[in-house]
């Protein structure tokens, strides 16, 4: 399945709808839908929030494919260079006062996905994910 999201936060609804269709078509259970949705949501939210400093409309191209033993995902955007793998993990298990709100999103992606690859190519961020089933 391939689809395009615009760089508007309301597009998270479209993302959820498309993944629901994908999981229904491939007989994937609700917990897999949740993990795919969470991982893509966090990456797309980052791209929309920090990727662009013009006020123009941009495309985020997404493909989601069922393979023999899992799901492969590719995200492509023409925003500012951002490698999610360079993000530091947040402090987990810290006291409330020391807990920080940043970094949790990427931490979820790392936790939920089995493979994450990043490359910057021809002015685009390309993120490839794999979730094993």
């Amino acid at each position: 399945m391939e689809f395009i999201l615009k760089n508007k936060i309301s597009q998270l609804n479209k993302l959820a709808d498309m993944l629901k269709i994908f999981c229904a078509e491939n007989d994937l259970p609700d917990n897999i839908l949740f993990d795919l949705n969470l991982s893509l949501d966090e990456l797309v939210t980052n791209i929309i929030s920090y990727g662009f400093d013009d006020n123009k409309e941009h495309d985020i191209n997404i493909s989601v494919e069922k393979i023999e033993n899992g799901v492969e995902i590719k995200l492509e955007d023409d925003g500012a260079e951002f490698n999610p793998l360079n993000e530091n993990d947040p402090k987990i298990g810290a006291a409330l006062e020391e807990m920080e709100v940043g970094g949790l999103g990427i931490y979820f992606v790392k936790n939920k996905m089995d493979e994450i690859h990043y490359q910057r190519q021809l002015g685009k961020n390309i993120i490839k994910l794999k979730k094993k089933l």
């Binding site: 949705n37 949501d41 939210t45 409330l96 709100v101 949790l104 999103g105 979820f108």
Partner: peptide, 16 residues
């Protein structure tokens, strides 16, 4: 039905 890190962010700020 669903929560992302943005929801946790609000909860953490509220808890503080």
């Amino acid at each position: 039905d669903y929560i992302s890190s943005m929801g946790l962010r609000v909860l953490l700020q509220a808890a503080k």
